[in-house]
Amino acid sequence: MRLHRYEFRAMASSHEIVLGAGDALHAARTAEAMIADVQRIEAKYSRFRHGSLVSRINRAAGAAAVSMDAETAALLDYADTCHRASGGRFDITSGALSELWEFRRDPPRVPGADEIARALALVGWPSVERDHRSVRLPRAGMRIDLGGIGKEYAADRAAAIGIDGGIAHGCVNLGGDVRVWGGRPDGGPWRIGIRDPDGGRDPIATLDRFDGAVATSGDYERGFVVDGVRYGHVIDATDGRPVMHWRSVSVAAPLCVVAGSGATVAMLLGHDAPAWLAAQGCDWIGVDTSGAIHPRERRP
């Protein structure tokens, strides 16, 4: 029993698959199938790919409905669940807001109320017309983005392919969204480090898991500072402004898609997040804007 490691890039980040298997060929073939499925999901759901289904849906905004398959319908159903769980803050149609806040102005400045209002007019998951076969964005310029769900979904599917392929021990890390199963071949749990949002080399905490997932949502990857205030890219769709309470939240859950959406919803809920996460029964680690680690017992 050896650990076989495969690294690859997709969805604009670097990914890693680690499989514990006795047979190198078996591990390699299984990893190939897993990587192929991750690439399939990227090709289908990336908003940066012209030919993707998401791009086609976005290009048809304000015009025709676009037909979709059962997989896409299930993802949109899941996005709907997250929208409701977050009181409307989590919204896959908030692309116009992300663009507004991510736009690099020189010198950096906070967008004005009129700009935010214009962007908000292009946001609104409840206004999306959909049934099980098709989806239509009602206004031209409206767009959907499955960030926060798609990569996590890909991690869960890759794990399922590995498990079904007879791989007893595995770890899938898609750009920080981690799904593990079976523990390590030496009998220990997988040790999942939580990245320091300040860019420090050492993880701020470690979660040990035999089976399950850990995903992190944070604003340290993109964002800007004006007058000492940091503006991130996680935008509350109800007021059109970046959330300010957390720098990052990591959530552990049985499935990566649950961990990922849970982390994003927690970011959006701000100071209500601890209570909400406790109600979900999720283990979590958060870093607030002052750099303090939560929950308290996690502090080193």
């Binding site: 499925d37 059962a70 997989e71 299930a74 993802l75 159903d77 899941y78 669940t81 979904y153 869960d156 599917r157 794990a159 399922a160 392919i161 498990i163 079904d164 499935l255 898609v257 649950v258 959406s261």
Partner: peptide, 10 residues
């Protein structure tokens, strides 16, 4: 809701 996603469960 997550379990309804195709292929996430082996």
């Amino acid at each position: 809701a997550a379990l309804a996603l195709p292929g996430v469960v082996p």
